[in-house]
Amino acid sequence: MYGDGLSVIICCYNSACRLPATLKHLAGQQLSAGTAWEVIVVDNASTDETAETAKAEWEKYGIPGVSFQVVAEEKPGLSHAREKGIRASVFRLVVFCDDDNWLSEDYLQIAYTAMSGDPAIAAVGGQSTAAADIPLPDWFEASKNNYAVGRQAEQSGDISWRKHLWGSGLVIRKDLYNKAFSNFPSMLTGRNGKVLSSGEDSEICMRFLLMGYRLHYLEALTFKHFIAADRLRCDYNTKLMEGFIRAHEVLRIYARFIDAPGLPPKDRFPATLRSLIKVLAARLTGTRRWNIFDEKLQIFMLTGYPFKSIPPQIRSIRRLSVHRKKHRLNDC
């Protein structure tokens, strides 16, 4: 059992220069009496004074009753850092606050109220505005989603159809995260130092959807995303896009597993048969007319036939999907 409250996890890699403003906004949170919370800073193989800065800054505010700790995760990668933070947390709700996210003063209270009201919601996300020390470049408006800036939907509510929420300011249920990843290791590690890989946020959300839960957007959840000048260059934006493209190959498989149950029963056999014919035809004739892996994946999703070419990670996705009923609301 986990305590009733929120654990704010800040994953850091060389964040000494960004943490003071982030912690200042966290220290200004306004919560109703009795709403418990804590702050956990995860130092993910930093080479600067991230840990020392975090401790010194938080001590300035002296907030009674709020636990603060810095934990170290030497294995690089955002997913590793988040796992370390979650293991160190004690409350049932987890808030991922990036080291450059300035949460509005009511952020935690709104998140707590929303998640407490509907156990079918696995995760909620909000909207952000950009903050920077230099004028935003002309191209930024068209690329702001790459930076988790803007609105995630037209209005508040269920956005499970979108299949993901931003990791910035993401609020999740700890028990669902543990069920989603304890026996099914992550296929994506996220940003690793200066390597801008992506997709770990979407992977979390997609696993929740596979388990039968929902994603919600709340426009009342607001924060500022501070973007340093060196991240407002075209080459940095290009690297972000390249990271998204690399992650897409994995995430599209998740999406297919999420959508597979929506295929009407009467269409399942014909779909399986069509894919099987293509696989057999390719084996007999050597044709490369079709993407045979995709056809085998289709058969695997619909029937579970264990093709040797299906990697163990993808098999784990199906196992998670098959067991979704075990993770439904009666487990909350």
Rank of each mutant, 00 (worst) to 15 (best):
G3T: 02
A16V: 07
L19Q: 06
S32P: 15
A33F: 08
A36L: 09
A36D: 14
A36S: 12
V41H: 00
V41N: 02
V41M: 00
N44M: 01
A45F: 10
T47D: 11
E49V: 03
E52H: 07
A56K: 00
Y61E: 06
G62M: 08
P64M: 08
G65T: 10
G65R: 09
V70E: 02
A72I: 00
E74M: 01
G77R: 08
R82Q: 11
E83L: 00
F91N: 13
R92I: 01
L93G: 06
L93C: 09
V94E: 04
V95C: 15
N101F: 01
S104G: 14
S104A: 14
Q109L: 01
M115V: 05
G125N: 02
I134P: 07
A142Y: 02
A148E: 03
A148W: 12
A153P: 04
A153R: 02
A153T: 07
E154Q: 12
S160L: 02
K163N: 15
L165H: 05
W166K: 03
S168D: 14
V171E: 04
R173P: 04
D175G: 04
L188R: 01
S197P: 00
S197G: 00
D201F: 03
C205E: 07
L209P: 06
Y213N: 15
L218E: 11
K224I: 06
I227T: 10
A229E: 15
D230E: 15
N237S: 13
T238L: 10
T238G: 08
M241H: 15
G243M: 04
A247P: 00
L251F: 10
R252S: 11
R252V: 05
F257I: 03
G262V: 06
G262D: 13
R274F: 11
S275T: 04
L276Y: 09
I277V: 13
L280H: 01
R283I: 10
R289V: 04
N291F: 06
F293P: 08
L297Q: 05
I299G: 00
F300P: 05
T303S: 08
G304P: 03
F307R: 02
R315V: 10
R318I: 01
R318T: 05
S321H: 09
H327R: 13
H327D: 13
